[in-house]
Write a protein that binds this DNA or RNA. Structure first.
Lengths: 349, 349
DNA sequence: CGTTGAGCGTGAAACGTTTCATCAACGAGG
DNA sequence: CCTCGTTGATGAAACGTTTCACGCTCAACG
């Protein structure tokens, strides 16, 4: 047994068939095999069939690394998610995947989990893979790594975040408007003391929603002190519960009659805390969330929420990056979607 | 301007620096650059620094395609998820990613969405990428495509499913035991008429949980007719609501006092339907779910659920595939985890 | 009959790495 | 002074594709 055969047996992994193998089996040149693969019209019916037959017999699978190396570009996009455990982002991811698949591109999903170091590693990996483009919901939209990547030639689109006055594609939702819609709704329903639950305020999202909320409040001519800002450490269910306790701890005079939460996870936590401590929703406390994830509508008291067009966000992001990679005179674009209030029982009673 | 420069300018994407560029800038050979990259100990301190400097200046990023082509293998795993919108699977995915990262492997996440055709496409793509191994929660565990892939040399581990008497690695959870635990708990709590909500029964999971449930029922010597099987079309929140209506529609004599749902999504839907139509949980209807996703604990009436070690499932799957690819005398293994009942208010009152 | 032009196929070069046999330089030991 | 071994660097081959400039064949046409 020669060395090659030995190592092959040991590895247990037979060398996959290559175009060369297919070519010799079909009695043609490798160039022809490649033509069958890439421009079937350039090759006669008869030989095409012979080659395809050989491929089937050998179980030929095209080696994408080699293809990519020669062609100089890959057929794949990547989306770096901020938090895979938040259904909002998985929906965005599915929108991206769909749109990419329609353009016969494959999508790699990665996951930073809000950790900047991890995000860096993921990006490095993707750059090494020479993906066509990177879609990302960054931990920090201002981060320089994004610029470095772009400087090296990989296209990047920012998803669900924006960058001030920058020349980069992004898709996002008008969070200030969302905040306004939420608070206007609460004011319409007669609430005159309202809590804004969210944080940390280092997140642009949170800042904008808060800004919209307080703007609506001022516009209605209500006293500034009666819009209470309750800061949270994260946008999680736990923190929602904590916020609920803090609200319960306030004196009756100061206690808000409604809460606007910066996302649905917070709202669900708050809802749970309220209900389990015997407060009625919305009579004792009205609650409004943000994102309108599936679980918001599924809560025991269905949650009013500000809906973002999640799938569409993803689809548009994919469209933008495809344009950027294909179209020589691509113009950077910041698409801003309009959120929509979905009123349910948690504010309607 | 020559043609190369023109097309380069037009594409707007400068050709990234290669080892050759780095080599000439550092005044060494390409072999040396490669050594710096792969066995830094083989190269003197001085040249190493020179090369690293050159890399930094040129913004060199290793081309993974070329690396892979030459080395014959990739540094990546893939997980094909069944349903990204179910938090259970994202948790499993995170477990896989963590374990893979620890072994300095990157992970590609794909998503079949329960669609066999889509699954096939994804698998084909992954095979073309020559990933080291594929982890998959298959649409149909019995499908032949899995065998074909393995026959061609790519290792596969089945996640959260099993295959009868087959020689393939898998990780799963003892669903029959889970079903038993759930129903025993309900019997303990005094329930004598119980519904099993789940379907379709073509899913192994559902069958096993049902089997465990009816076994526990028989073992307690209770009349078979009093364990009612309510079939659903899918394992979704919607279907949970439908099941709730069906339960409500039963005559008082026949109506169960508790429901065991085949997953948490169903349970949440059922819970919502019950609560919004004025039934009290657990007094009028006790509910128990399966998976113990985060939203189960976060429900207004916190859900009793059967917990599966999700992260650990993922980690173990990753461990298995790494062993299979690295260890020449790897033995196939079917790891079965033990589920655990987490009792909360939806059954405790 | 000679020329032309499709229509098909060919073969070699190139993509960016890694690997490996080889070589140069140099110090130690005889 | 010669030989050896060690250390560090080199250069060419190889991985599996795609691409492209050529050929070959044959039918049509002048």
């Amino acid at each position: 047994m020669n060395r090659a055969a030995m190592s092959r047996a040991k590895a247990g992994r037979p060398r996959p068939a290559s175009v060369k193998d297919v070519a010799s089996r079909a009695g043609v040149s490798v160039g022809t095999v490649s033509n069958v693969l890439n421009r079937p019209d350039r090759v006669s019916e008869a030989t095409r069939q012979r080659v395809e037959q050989a491929m089937a017999e050998l179980g030929f699978i095209r080696n994408e690394s080699a293809r990519q190396l020669r062609a100089g570009k890959s057929r794949s996009l990547a989306y770096v998610m901020l938090d895979a455990s938040n259904p909002f982002f998985t929906d965005v991811a599915m929108g991206i995947e769909d749109a990419a698949a329609r353009a016969s591109m494959s999508t790699f999903l990665c996951h930073s989990g809000g950790d900047a170091a991890r995000e860096r590693t993921q990006l490095q990996l993707l750059e090494q893979q020479r993906v066509q483009g990177i879609l990302i919901t960054p931990v920090d939209p201002g981060s320089a790594v994004i610029d470095e990547i772009r400087a090296r030639g990989t296209h990047v689109v920012i998803v669900d975040r924006t960058r001030q006055g920058d020349t980069i594609c992004s898709v996002s939702v008008d969070d200030e408007l969302g905040g306004r819609l939420a608070v206007e709704h609460l004011i319409d329903r007669g609430h005159r003391r309202v809590a804004f639950v969210g944080g940390p305020h280092s997140i642009g999202q949170v800042r904008d929603r808060w800004a919209g909320a307080s703007e609506a409040w001022r516009a209605a001519g209500l006293p500034e002190d009666d819009l209470v800002r309750l800061d949270t450490e994260r946008l999680s269910v736990d923190e929602g519960r904590v916020a609920g306790q803090r609200i319960a701890g306030l004196s009756t005079r100061r206690r808000p009659t409604a809460a606007f939460c910066a996302n649905d996870l917070l709202a669900l936590g708050l809802l749970q805390q309220a209900v389990t401590t015997g407060r009625r929703v919305p009579d004792d406390l009205a609650i409004i969330g943000y994102d309108d994830i599936e679980f918001a509508a599924a809560a025991a008291v269905p949650l009013t929420s500000v809906r973002q067009p999640r799938q569409q966000l993803g689809e548009t992001a994919a469209r933008l990056i495809l344009d950027e990679t294909d179209n020589p005179d691509h113009q950077h674009e910041s698409v801003v979607f309009t959120p929509e209030l979905v009123a349910r029982r948690s504010t309607l009673g």
